[in-house]
Each structure stands twice: as structure tokens, then as C-alpha cells.
Amino acid sequence: MGVEPVGYVVGGRVPVEDDDWAGVEAVIRLDAERFGPEALYGLDGFSHLEVVFHFDRVPPERVETGARHPRGNQDWPLVGIFAQRGKNRPNRLGVSRCTLLRVDGLDVHVAGLDAVDGTPVLDIKPWMAEFGPRGEQARQPGWATELMKGYY
């Protein structure tokens, strides 16, 4: 299975850092050789996007397949890689929900996308309320709430 980037993150944050993403604005620039502006028609009707991207700066030898303490914090429990959202994932895929600011040609302007300048973007999807939690209220462990306090 091969996956090609649909575009790249331009601007925003350059260093890889974990927190304070809310005010970070960036552009997702589509590949002009594969897409025309019509690929983005109607996207501006949505307030939020889900963006799938590749953690391309994680060396393969740093990939985690077992359990670890999130961010190396021994006060948090040992949890499996699929019970956390760290970047050292088996396929090095990231998924982020961000705010859509505007669409300009092949440029998608966003805020709160937790991907750094130059990151390959694999897909862009509009976020729809129906894809949010259904039925019961969403739940998560206390350590996850604590970890996310300063993330956005």
C-alpha cells in the first residue's frame, strides 16, 4: 500500500514541541501537480477539519510498539501505544482536529493544527458533528486530562 502526501504544512511552528498549539496558524498547501482549486470547493462551509499527516521526523528506530509512560512521566500509568496519541506510533500517523480559517486557491489556512512546518499531509476531511461522540458522554482517564491541559 502506498500513500502520497496531498500537500504539506507551510508555516506555523518549526521546532517540534508538545504544547500551546491553539494560537498557532499554518497553511496546508495542496500539491498543485495533483490538485486544482476545485478539490477544495465547499470546504469553507465547515468550521473545523480533521487532518491526517505523517510524523516524518520520527526516525523508524524511535517507533514504539509496546507500552510506555506518556511523555516519560513516571507519575502517569504505563499504557500501550494505542492508548495514547504520541508521535512515535507504528505507522507514524498523526490525526489532528483544527479550525479552518479560510481557503485561498490551494492554500487551506488553519489554526491549532499540531503539525510543524514541512509536515506531509496525507488527507484533509471536514469535521462533522455526527462524527463526534454519540450516545454516552465521552470518557478518558485522569492522566490524559492532565497531559492535555496546556496542549491547546
Score class of each variant (00 low, 15 high):
44 D>A: 06
94 G>H: 01
127 W>Y: 15
20 D>Q: 07
75 D>N: 11
55 F>P: 00
128 M>R: 02
50 E>A: 03
144 A>E: 05
39 A>E: 04
32 A>S: 14
51 V>H: 12
86 G>K: 10
74 Q>E: 04
3 V>G: 05
31 D>H: 03
15 P>A: 01
73 N>T: 03
67 A>K: 10
38 E>R: 07
150 G>H: 15
27 V>A: 05
67 A>I: 04
111 A>H: 01
97 R>C: 07
43 L>E: 08
39 A>K: 01
51 V>M: 13
100 L>Y: 12
140 Q>R: 15
127 W>F: 14
129 A>D: 06
55 F>Q: 11
111 A>T: 08
60 P>A: 09
28 I>V: 15
15 P>F: 05
133 P>A: 15
112 G>K: 08
21 W>P: 00
12 G>H: 05
110 V>W: 09
143 W>N: 11
106 L>H: 10
125 K>H: 01
132 G>C: 06
69 H>Q: 04
112 G>Q: 13
3 V>E: 09
136 E>M: 10
42 G>V: 12
34 R>T: 08
63 V>R: 14
107 D>L: 04
114 D>K: 06
78 L>E: 12
128 M>I: 15
103 V>G: 00
87 K>A: 14
13 R>H: 00
149 K>H: 07
76 W>S: 08
21 W>V: 02
77 P>Q: 08
14 V>T: 15
44 D>I: 00
89 R>G: 09
98 C>G: 09
29 R>G: 02
148 M>C: 07
111 A>W: 13
60 P>T: 12
77 P>F: 02
151 Y>L: 08
91 N>W: 14
146 E>Y: 04
145 T>P: 03
121 V>D: 01
151 Y>R: 14
137 Q>V: 14
110 V>Y: 10
95 V>Y: 15
72 G>L: 04
127 W>C: 15
20 D>M: 09
125 K>T: 11
125 K>V: 05
125 K>F: 08
132 G>N: 05
79 V>F: 07
1 M>C: 00
66 G>V: 10
13 R>S: 09
28 I>L: 09
86 G>N: 04
69 H>N: 05
96 S>G: 00
16 V>D: 15
128 M>Y: 10
17 E>Q: 13
101 L>C: 13
129 A>I: 14
139 R>T: 12
94 G>M: 07
70 P>A: 02
20 D>K: 08
9 V>Q: 02
143 W>M: 00
43 L>R: 02
10 V>N: 02
34 R>K: 14
82 F>D: 09
66 G>A: 06
1 M>P: 07
103 V>S: 13
